[in-house]
């Protein structure tokens, strides 16, 4: 009896999580002029309008460029730091870990204000540079957490075997360690990209006037009224933000099975 109750409860929780999202997808195919209920038929018109909306396309380009640059920089920083923390005995490793995680322990609004005001004081105004700096510092802890968790599972004896067979430390790193690390690096990069692509709290503080990322563009559009175009954009975002991590998972999985065989 108790178990059935828990099962039903869990089902309701899943329903709560998915229903609003499902409705976004459903409405994005709505033929009705106002894009609301009742559904009047199936149509792709909102996706076509979306693909012709210059502002949204520009926002997409900005978000993708920003996301790629953020992922590159914060993955590089994160992988180096994770290597140091996992592979070496560093005095005060706990304190260092906490310091590196600090950007997610500080409320994002506070981080956003501090960075905006300080860089402005250093004569770096609201700009793409500020936006990039903000996204890097905000995604870095996530990359470090993900990469560190994966790095721990790479066994050292494989590297030691390579070295005992005559490989130099450099050869060992590039031919053994790096390929083994690749899934962790990719997972970290995807994580950083997704978080950057989705960020709105800090972005609204950092972005220069006239520049919009996809979330801030949606936010600006919401101020008018909810149009079916937003639902179509939502559907595209859902596909992207859910599809990318799943793709990353698949890459990581296939890499590990190949290694295992």
């Amino acid at each position: 009896m108790g178990w059935n109750l828990i099962r039903t409860w869990t089902l309701l929780v899943y329903l709560f999580m998915f229903l609003p999202v499902a409705v976004v997808v459903l409405l994005s195919f709505n033929a009705s002029q106002f894009g609301s209920f009742p559904m009047t038929g199936f149509s792709l018109r909102w996706f076509i309008e979306l693909s012709q909306n210059e502002a949204i396309l520009r926002a997409f380009r900005t978000s993708i460029v920003l996301g790629l640059m953020t992922a590159t920089i914060s993955t590089t920083l994160g992988v180096l730091a994770s290597l140091a923390l996992v592979r070496y005995r560093v005095p005060g490793a706990n304190v260092i870990s906490t310091l590196l995680i600090a950007p997610i322990l500080v409320p994002e609004v506070v981080l956003a204000v501090a960075l905006l005001l300080f860089l402005n004081f250093m004569s770096i105004n609201k700009s793409f540079t500020l936006l990039l700096a903000g996204h890097v510092i905000f995604t870095l802890p996530f990359v470090i957490l993900v990469v560190q968790a994966r790095l721990v599972s790479i066994r050292r004896d494989v590297e030691e075997a390579a070295m005992s067979l005559g490989a130099s430390p450099r050869q060992t790193f590039f031919q053994i360690t790096l390929p083994l690390m690749l899934p962790a690096v990719l997972a970290g990069a995807l994580f950083a990209f997704t978080i950057s692509f989705d960020d709105i709290t800090g972005t609204l503080f950092w972005k220069p006037g006239g520049v919009e990322t996809v979330p801030t563009q949606i936010f600006a559009m919401l101020r008018n009224s909810i149009s079916p175009e937003i639902n179509a954009l939502g559907t595209v975002m859902i596909l992207l933000t859910v599809g990318l991590p799943l793709l990353g998972l698949a890459i990581a999985r296939s890499a590990s099975t190949k290694r295992g065989s």
Partner: peptide, 16 residues
Amino acid sequence: PFWISYIIRTMSWINI
């Protein structure tokens, strides 16, 4: 849903 855009998830309640 954790991966689905925060702003989309928030605005999705307007549809409901």
